[in-house]
């Protein structure tokens, strides 16, 4: 029992970070599932994180109202970004969102009244593991519901071929705009969750490293189903910890190699609905053929 408790204590924070990263990955997935590659989740996370930290410190609000506020802040940021960037074509969109990440850090650095500037901000509240689980479950439930809705169907159509989708009466821009608002809300909530997990945020918290972590988590897990990003975030967060215990001397190299190998052999990610479908079809075919043989 004691060893179990020890294990929990040792890897509890890794699990917490994995759940926070899952929120970021879901935020990235929200736009990616409509065919837009964007790194702006970092921006939404920064908005949500600093908003939550400041409102907890100065307005004295509780944990869940802070999450709500962060979500709203992120959604507003998401709609602004969508309004400015959606006219760009896909390649420019990716570059523009990366540029926005760089601008975010400079902004955070130069507004010390709001963000604590270079010294960062102590967050006077922490999120209990139970609340984090509930939060992720709630967000996942929303994605599950969306996946099965008209919106989910429309999003997949836009991703496959925007031109074809629009001939079917689906407005690609409208769908993508909605995706950005969802991405913003989830990213903002994730930013707040990170702030409450780390209990300290600084300009470096929301920067390039995070941008690449979230996109890698999303694609590694699989960007064709909402469950993929959650799996991807878990794997990508656990990877350094695992590598540290296996190959401490070259843990970063090992982490890169694992990521590389998975992507080369499973380019559609760990969770791939198409592969599941194909396997099912193959099984049906095999059993059907066996049936004819006998």
């Amino acid at each position: 029992m004691e060893t179990l408790l020890d294990l929990w204590a040792a890897y509890g924070s890794t699990i917490a970070f994995a759940m926070v990263n899952a929120l970021f990955a879901l935020s990235t997935y929200a736009v990616l599932s409509t065919g837009v590659l964007s790194f702006t989740t970092v921006v939404f996370a920064a908005v949500g994180g600093f908003l939550a930290a400041q409102s907890v410190a100065h307005l004295g609000i509780g944990l869940w109202p802070a999450f709500a506020l962060a979500g709203i802040g992120g959604a507003v940021a998401g709609s602004v970004v969508a309004a400015a960037f959606l006219k760009l074509d896909s390649h420019w969109m990716a570059l523009a969102s990366l540029a926005l990440v760089l601008i975010t850090r400079v902004t955070v650095l130069n507004t010390p009244l709001l963000t604590g500037g270079v010294n960062g901000l102590v967050v006077p509240m922490s999120v209990p593991m139970g609340d984090l689980v509930i939060l992720l479950a709630l967000v996942a439930a929303v994605f599950w519901r969306l996946h099965r809705s008209w919106y989910g169907l429309a999003a997949r159509a836009v991703r496959e071929d925007a031109a074809v989708a629009s001939t079917m009466g689906i407005p690609p821009r409208g769908i993508q705009f909605t995706a950005f608002v969802i991405s913003g809300a989830v990213g903002g909530i994730g930013g707040a969750a990170l702030a409450f997990t780390l209990q300290f945020i600084s300009p470096e918290t929301y920067f390039i490293g995070m941008a690449f972590t979230m996109i890698a988590s999303t694609v590694l897990g699989g960007s064709f189903h909402w469950f993929g990003p959650i799996v991807g975030a878990a794997v990508f967060t656990a990877l350094p910890v695992t590598m540290q215990s296996v190959l401490p001397a070259i843990e970063d190299v090992a982490k890169g190699v694992v990521l590389l190998v998975i992507m080369i052999f499973l380019p559609r990610g760990l969770v791939d609905p198409r592969a599941v479908g194909l396997r099912r079809a193959a099984r049906r075919r095999v059993s059907a053929e066996e049936g004819t043989d006998v």
Partner: peptide, 23 residues
């Protein structure tokens, strides 16, 4: 007993919690 953080806050916190868990 060493654990690497690479000067990253999140990794440092994870190393710390692992130390905390190690009696």
């Amino acid at each position: 007993s060493e654990k690497e953080s690479g000067s990253d806050a999140a990794r440092a916190v994870q190393a710390m919690t692992q130390f905390v868990a190690d009696r």
